[in-house]
Write a protein that binds this DNA or RNA. Structure first.
Lengths: 205, 205
DNA sequence: ACCTGAACACCGTTCAAGT
DNA sequence: ACCTGAACACCGTTCAAGT
């Protein structure tokens, strides 16, 4: 029953799906792997390293080579890939957001974005800046989506809605319509809006 | 030496500046206020409620009425206000990102953004969607800024840079230039790029 | 090399009892 | 009403000792 590093990461991601990130503790994960909590330190120097390895595993596919296409489509695909990867596991976005994103996968993905944007006509400095902007948007959106998915409906209702409607009828309408549209649709809308912003930065296009 | 709710929040924000969010524990905050940790539960039902009150206090000024101006300028000001508010305290962005943003201030700020965008010609549903996009960008950017400010330079150097340069020279160049430009400038660039994206969503403008 | 068992130094939270 | 003192049920992490 000896464990390897990859077994621990795999088991941790499985644990994540069934129990959630809040319950992922070294002792409980150990128990799920039929091992004491302390034994996990033979494979990872600390919990943060485990979480980083999990996040890295989660975003594995994001940086694979892109099919030839116009730059807008390529950026769109990269954003969609990143979101889909995080949604593949419960609390995936929170897991990724909590790590330092210093893993190999985020680097290859980031360099892909930069390459695409440079190919579109942007200077490297601007491409890098906008690559991070894209990252913030996708991560933030997916984080919100996933939090609401696992949050009881009532809680959101109580806090936001009642205050909103007394404050600004337009805000109430906007908020209500947000709750009624598919998150994937909202995500795509924001992603394309971002892409149009990027387009405005490209010289003479 | 009796404490009021506001005293606790104020003391907690002061503690945040000197010690950081990671060290902000009920016991230590209590000690800083000359009180035992358990006493804080007379003022807040739990730690999450304290953090939410802190985040709410932090973002107090974001939602104050805007001077008359073109919508682009108004959105720009709102983004700048939000970033500035979070930067005003150590770990301010992390504090805000950890709470459910259900406070009164985030609602007034959000409704301001929606109102401005609707005034610019957007439908409420789209305005709401883009208001969240803006929120994700500003929060994500400020989070990164603030994390790097309190992170030893070496750590970033080791992980990112060495891998990046072997992977893609353009990415390495982009990354290096990012480290050498003022965060405020990068923030403004991304914010204006977002605004141009929003502009592309406005009918016949 | 990998794991157990037990400990250390903490957490958030609760609650009788004091003032 | 607010606080103390002490406890409960946990954490991450370490480390001798086992196999």
């Amino acid at each position: 029953m000896l464990l390897r590093k990859a077994d621990v990461v795999e088991g941790a991601l499985k644990f994540l799906d069934t129990e959630g990130l809040d319950k992922l503790t070294m002792r409980k994960l150990g128990a799920a792997l039929n091992v004491h909590g302390g034994a996990l330190y033979r494979h990872f120097p600390n919990k943060a390293a485990l979480l980083e390895a999990m996040a890295n595993k989660l975003t594995e596919g994001v940086g694979v080579p892109l099919p030839e296409a116009p730059w807008r489509d390529q950026i769109y695909v990269l954003g969609q890939r990143f979101r889909t990867a995080m949604l593949a596991h419960r609390d995936g976005a929170r897991l990724v957001s909590g790590t330092h994103a210093t893993g190999a996968n985020s680097i290859t993905a980031g360099s892909l974005v930069v390459d695409v944007l440079c190919g579109a006509g942007l200077a490297p400095a601007q491409a890098g800046s906008l690559a991070f902007s894209l990252y913030y948007y996708v991560l933030g959106h997916t984080l919100d989506e996933q939090n609401q998915a696992y949050t009881p409906e009532e809680e959101w209702q109580s806090g936001e809605n009642q205050l909103a409607s007394t404050l600004s009828p337009r805000y109430a309408e906007a908020f209500a319509s947000l709750m009624n549209t598919d998150p994937a649709e909202r995500f795509a809308y924001g992603l394309n809006t971002f892409i149009e912003g990027v387009a405005s930065r490209i010289p003479h296009s």
